[in-house]
Design a protein around this nucleic acid. Structure first.
Lengths: 147, 147
DNA sequence: ATCTAATCCCTGTATATACATGTTTCATGG
DNA sequence: CCATGAAACATGTATATACAGGGATTAGAT
């Protein structure tokens, strides 16, 4: 019976593999970003908002595979920092999110830290693996949403 | 200046890619595991403890790329559920963690849910991608810890 | 114009995660 | 044997994440 469980579970769990790698890599990026007082999630949000311009809060979640309710909360520290501003839409149910000038400055300030982290990871992974991951991971996220 | 930031950030961020995929995949696994009242993290811990037998709490963290302080807290709901027990070591600073009989039963109960999730993901990913991820992700975690 | 259902977001609650710091216990040099 | 530092874990605090359920607003049918 015990052996039964063991045998089945021996197949590696994709979810666990992803989460474990996520934790380890996040710590490395956070180590660098800490020097400018940002976390990787916050950096990603700023970078994303900078690219897209003003976005509806719900769409932000969809595009980052984040629950709406999580977006609400993730945006909060950014608003507190003055890096992001939120306004009510014409449709007053909607919230529209924008990066502020201060946010753009912060993003610029954080860029070298992010580059260092990115370089570190690139340096310790075979080029093939690096390229492959960047190509494949978005599809994995997509597939899981469909799933 | 704005273009400057945009250009640099256009390179995909490995950390963001991993976290995004993690979230999406975790939701899929959690959807299944919810039917038996477990989360993917809890399932992974149980599965791990089942494989290894009694472990020192600190080692558990190391092997799962979890901070010690996070292990302390992740173990809590499992102890509350009666699926895991903790005892003080001969060296009284140490905590030794074991899966209980109830924990093994729970793991067995959860197995079909996990298999469903696993199959779902396998079904929506090319075989090559699936194999490659399972092979590569542990190395990524390892590399990040070294990094 | 009104009623109903859908949309969009928020709050409550719980887990997950990590860092800074604190506490207890052990090991080790003197 | 004692002092000091290291080891192992816990707590305080903050963010990240998600589900269940709730409130406000709008769209659509009648």
């Amino acid at each position: 019976m015990v052996e039964d469980v063991t045998r089945t579970v021996r197949t590696p769990c994709l979810c666990h593999a992803l989460r474990k790698a996520s934790r380890a890599v996040s710590r490395l990026y956070d180590d660098e970003l800490r020097t400018v007082g940002l976390r990787t999630t916050q950096f990603s949000l700023l970078a994303y908002l900078h690219r897209t311009g003003e976005v509806r809060q719900g769409d932000l979640g969809e595009l980052m595979s984040l629950e709406e309710t999580t977006v609400t909360r993730n945006v909060r520290p950014l608003v507190s920092g003055g890096w992001v501003s939120v306004r009510v839409g014409i449709d007053r149910r909607e919230k529209w999110v924008t990066i502020t000038e201060a946010g753009i400055a912060k993003l610029k300030e954080a860029l070298p830290a992010w580059v260092r982290a990115q370089r570190k990871m690139k340096a310790v992974l075979p080029e093939q693996v690096w390229q492959n991951l960047l190509a494949v991971l978005p599809d994995v996220a997509q597939a899981a949403v469909q799933g």
